[in-house]
């Protein structure tokens, strides 16, 4: 049966939500689970604050793209001021770090970094590389900074599915409600919620009711995750059977069975 042997589509998923809601934990764990299953996966970290590197388990927290990744338009020519020096897939292949389970990891330079160089060029490079990876051979899993700014300025346009991570607390729910508007843009991605740090079905219902988004997974409040985060370890390495990790495993299964669009 052809339908059973056809390869599942590659994921193009971006995680957004309020700061501290659990975006990095969930996205980092998904990245590692894909890698452990032998699948090619590229993690895209566009948060100028540290986060995803910890949950993936990469000891590299500040390595943006070099400014040579973009070239400036010569004087007198038309067009945008900067363009990528090479195609996005080549740049991602060259500059992504390789982490545990063979996962690839690409990040923007971090705020307050001493790396120097032109942050603007590096940010531009990252954004345009991310936008040009659809033909690449990897699953794409993005972790955006907390809040509404990057998502509404088009940093997740490469994503076919946007997952809003929402804790059952007012500020996180209000943020989720704002982010739900991403899905109302014509031709925009599908937008769904993942309830995070929940203590039972009532919490999940609160997230669904107040954000108006379909909740496709509920990740429980889990002391094992808090312990991993205290140690700076990837939750998957700290306790692969922790309830929150199991919930992310289920989320990945349902994403894949739905062809990556939930």
């Amino acid at each position: 049966m052809a339908a059973e042997t056809a390869p599942a589509p590659l994921l193009r998923v971006a995680f957004v939500g309020k700061g501290g809601s659990g975006k990095s934990m969930i996205s980092g764990t998904i990245v590692r689970l894909l890698g452990a299953a032998g699948e090619p996966v590229l993690a895209l970290d566009s948060d100028p604050l540290p986060g995803l590197a910890f949950s993936v388990g990469i000891p590299q927290h500040d390595a943006g793209l070099p400014e040579e990744a973009v070239v400036e338009r010569p004087e007198g020519e038309d067009g945008p001021r900067f363009r990528l020096a090479e195609d996005a897939v080549t740049l991602a292949e060259r500059h992504a770090r390789v982490g545990p389970d063979g996962v690839r990891f690409l990040q923007i330079g971090k705020a307050g970094s001493r790396a120097g160089g032109n942050q603007g060029r590096s940010l531009h490079a990252f954004r345009h590389v991310a936008a040009g990876l659809d033909d690449g051979p990897w699953h794409l899993v993005g972790d955006l900074p907390g809040g509404t700014r990057q998502p509404f300025f088009g940093w997740a346009r490469w994503a076919r599915l946007v997952l809003v991570v929402v804790e059952p607390v007012s500020a996180s729910i209000l943020t989720g409600r704002r982010l739900a508007r991403l899905g109302q843009v014509e031709g925009g991605p599908r937008v769904v919620a993942v309830a995070s740090k929940v203590d039972g079905p009532a919490d999940t219902e609160l997230v669904a009711g107040r954000t108006g988004l379909p909740v496709i997974a509920a990740v429980p409040h889990d002391p094992a995750v808090a312990a991993a985060e205290r140690l700076g370890s990837a939750p998957l390495d700290h306790d692969p059977d922790a309830p929150a990790v199991q919930a992310v495993r289920s989320l990945l299964v349902s994403l894949r069975s739905a062809g990556g669009v939930a």
């Binding site: 309020k18 907390g146 809040g147 700014r149 007012s170 500020a171 209000l174 943020t175 409600r177 704002r178």
Partner: peptide
């Protein structure tokens, strides 16, 4: 840019939004 201070001050959902 994701303004939530109203919630913590006790202004409520609607006024914050």
């Amino acid at each position: 840019t994701n303004a939530n201070l109203g919630l913590s001050l006790g202004l409520g959902w609607d006024a914050t939004d």
